[in-house]
Amino acid sequence: MNSEFLAALRDLEKERSISVEVLLEAIEAALLSAYRRNFGTSHNARVQVDRHTGDCKVYARRTVVQEVEDPQDQISLEEARAINPGYQLEDTVESEITPRNFGRIAAQTAKQVVVQRIREAERNMVFEEFASREGDIVTGVVQRIEQRNVYIELGKTEAVLPPAEQIPRENYRPGQRLKTYIVEVKKTTKGPLILVSRTHPGLLKRLFEIEVPELHQGLVELKAVAREAGIRSKIAVYSNDEGIDPVGACVGPKGARVQAIVQELNGEKIDVVKWSPDSSKFVSSSLSPAKVIAVEVWEDEKIARVIVPDYQLSLAIGKEGQNARLAAKLTGWKIDIKSESQMAEIYREYLEQQGYEQV
């Protein structure tokens, strides 16, 4: 190693933000291991890289003692004072023992250490960049598919879309551009592991924030999301500004905004409903597109009974109970849906139990 090598390290410090001192300390530690491995010595040694010239030297370290038991690690007080009269017991005496061909080993080792540290620094930079973006959307290109895991290129690194986070029946192909939601970023020995999702409710929320300026500006607030990925979703939105229709803002002119998101999610149906601080109103709107006649609420138990016209019952419940299930997820309430006929029958039975006769 020489002064040119030190200059290269300083350039590296500017480009990659890797401290020269940290690099030199790592090189010294690696050189000490290389020295012991190549020369099989039991010396208590130290390697030093000159910070000005880049020269590498090896020093044997021995402790000053009254009576020497191990010549490799100890030196008598008399011998130490022959070198320097100022030495005292328990002091450490260093003497240079640099092997003749150590320069070649030093250059090779230093190169390996620098390359390794550059890789580590790049991994740390990637980790820090994406760790700060957990809960955000990223756009990448599908690289390959292995054992049902989809690997997506994100510039200098790649993300993994595992099977559990993939939309059912959604097909992926190499070269395809894909928006995903960063669920978690982990540190591993092979670099950062970025786990992404296509099913997370957060993906839907972020897509609306990108597509709807009023959400980004804070004029409209997205209060809740309920999602069955690839099939149907519901979002609840609200605005403090009476002049802004939150549902209309999210749907967009002729449905353009919501349709852009539907297209991104390959046809997933999306219901946009108005959130309300009034529980009965919110529960009612959550069952959209079904029309609701009345809502009874039990606030403490968070249970709501919803009455709908007979012809709206199947719409309110939805295919395999999907609409009712999503409404319950959206509101956080247990929702019992009854038709007018069912409620009339319940009322009739109640009157009979109470001993009233039908007129």
Results as ranks from 00 to 15, higher is better:
residue 267 G to H: 09
residue 233 S to L: 13
residue 289 P to N: 09
residue 281 K to P: 03
residue 221 E to V: 11
residue 195 L to S: 06
residue 267 G to N: 10
residue 228 E to L: 11
residue 232 R to G: 07
residue 203 L to F: 11
residue 213 P to G: 02
residue 292 V to T: 00
residue 242 E to D: 14
residue 197 S to A: 02
residue 205 K to T: 06
residue 254 K to T: 00
residue 245 D to N: 14
residue 243 G to I: 03
residue 246 P to M: 00
residue 277 P to K: 13
residue 260 A to H: 06
residue 230 G to Y: 08
residue 248 G to R: 07
residue 203 L to A: 04
residue 278 D to H: 12
residue 220 V to I: 05
residue 244 I to L: 10
residue 268 E to T: 04
residue 254 K to F: 04
residue 245 D to A: 05
residue 202 G to A: 07
residue 210 I to E: 13
residue 293 I to F: 07
residue 250 C to V: 09
residue 208 F to Y: 10
residue 280 S to E: 14
residue 278 D to I: 12
residue 288 S to F: 13
residue 231 I to R: 14
residue 211 E to M: 08
residue 206 R to G: 01
residue 217 Q to I: 00
residue 252 G to L: 04
residue 193 L to C: 01
residue 222 L to I: 08
residue 260 A to G: 14
residue 267 G to P: 13
residue 237 V to A: 09
residue 286 S to R: 02
residue 216 H to V: 03
residue 255 G to T: 03
residue 288 S to R: 05
residue 250 C to I: 08
residue 222 L to M: 15
residue 236 A to Q: 11
residue 286 S to T: 09
residue 267 G to R: 07
residue 253 P to H: 14
residue 207 L to I: 08
residue 228 E to A: 06
residue 288 S to H: 08
residue 217 Q to H: 14
residue 238 Y to S: 06
residue 252 G to M: 09
residue 291 K to T: 13
residue 245 D to G: 08
residue 281 K to F: 10
residue 230 G to R: 02
residue 194 I to T: 01
residue 226 A to K: 05
residue 288 S to C: 03
residue 281 K to E: 15
residue 248 G to K: 10
residue 200 H to S: 10
residue 293 I to G: 00
residue 194 I to S: 01
residue 210 I to S: 03
residue 220 V to A: 01
residue 255 G to Y: 08
residue 222 L to G: 10
residue 257 R to H: 06
residue 224 A to E: 14
residue 196 V to H: 04
residue 234 K to I: 08
residue 280 S to T: 12
residue 270 I to V: 10
residue 244 I to G: 00
residue 201 P to E: 01
residue 199 T to Y: 04
residue 214 E to G: 02
residue 236 A to I: 14
residue 284 S to K: 03
residue 258 V to K: 06
residue 231 I to A: 15
residue 211 E to Q: 12
residue 273 V to W: 01
residue 284 S to C: 05
residue 235 I to Q: 08
residue 257 R to S: 03
residue 288 S to T: 12
